[in-house]
Write a protein that binds this DNA or RNA. Structure first.
Length: 263
DNA sequence: AACCAGGTGGAGC
DNA sequence: GCTCCACATGGT
């Protein structure tokens, strides 16, 4: 089934290559396959329309955040002069509502890593342990990762993050953290997440934003820090606090427009 | 051949 | 609280 969207605020390329998601593959300039959990969709643009072709239309309607008014968000953020040109470049970005476990493990792998390598590690992880869905493999469930040891993650190219993955999988499997994350406020959810091995401030903010839909977050990575640092805000923590205060509930959107435009 | 990549954790102060 | 630094891996 294929759903149609006005493409002004929904471009496949901007949405998928702005750094929020790792499981996608480009077929051409504005034509992508994207995988989430155990499902997939083809997202492509023709003229001023974006099409989503999938067997799970209701899932991807939510995944692509279809009911949020990005025109209103960009109007609010355009008032900040430092964002004006970023929004012109990236106004087709949508913040995806991704699977929580997939987001947690994906961003643990992202630490001190580059995006092409993150993508290939995650693809190998899916191929090794995720269910065969015919043409692609699902992201592994916690149950499927139950007995995966550090040396196996190491063999998949995860490097020093092997023990983080083992430790986090065990906690997610054996505690009620996942259910608590869904109902906790953003601050409490952040504290829960930073208690996981391999999850610090930045990775927690990515999980909050991309896996829990908390747009009042501002992940500060090396790129954002270089773009935002000043004499006043000379540490990642200060940049984060300043931008959270400045952009409020729109901080997550602001961060994505900036990341996409400056990376 | 150093340096970098969507950083984190730990030791030492 | 803070500052250094090791940590796998592959690309430039």
């Amino acid at each position: 089934m294929t759903a149609l969207y006005d493409g002004e605020f929904f471009e496949p390329k901007a949405t998928l290559t702005c750094g929020q998601v790792f499981r996608y593959r480009a077929l051409s300039e504005q034509d992508y396959l994207v995988y989430s959990g155990d499902t997939c969709a083809r997202v492509f643009r023709k003229g001023s329309t974006t099409y989503v072709d999938t067997d799970a239309p209701q899932y991807f309607e939510r995944y692509f955040d279809s009911t949020t008014d990005y025109g209103a968000i960009t109007e609010r953020l355009k008032k900040f002069p430092e964002l004006a040109c970023c929004i012109d470049k990236g106004k087709g970005i949508r913040i995806l509502k991704q699977q929580l476990v997939e987001t947690v493990l994906g961003f643990i792998i992202s630490a001190n890593n580059n995006i092409p390598r993150i993508q290939s590690i995650i693809e190998r992880l899916c191929n090794a342990f995720g269910a065969d869905k015919g043409g692609f493999h699902a992201f592994p469930t916690l149950e499927e990762l139950k007995d995966v040891g550090a040396q196996t993650y190491r063999a998949l190219g995860c490097g020093f993050r092997d023990r983080y993955l083992c430790g986090t999988v065990k906690i997610l499997r054996t505690t009620d953290m996942l259910s608590r994350l869904g109902t906790a406020d953003t601050l409490s959810a952040g504290e829960l997440l930073t208690g996981l091995p391999g999850v610090g401030r930045k990775v927690a903010d990515c999980i909050l934003l991309f896996g829990l839909g908390r747009t009042d977050c501002y992940p500060v990575d090396t790129w954002i820090f270089k773009a935002n640092r000043s004499a006043q805000n000379d540490t990642p923590r200060k940049v984060r606090d300043y931008c959270l205060q400045r952009y409020g509930k729109d901080a997550g959107y602001a961060q994505q427009y900036l990341f996409y435009a400056t990376r």
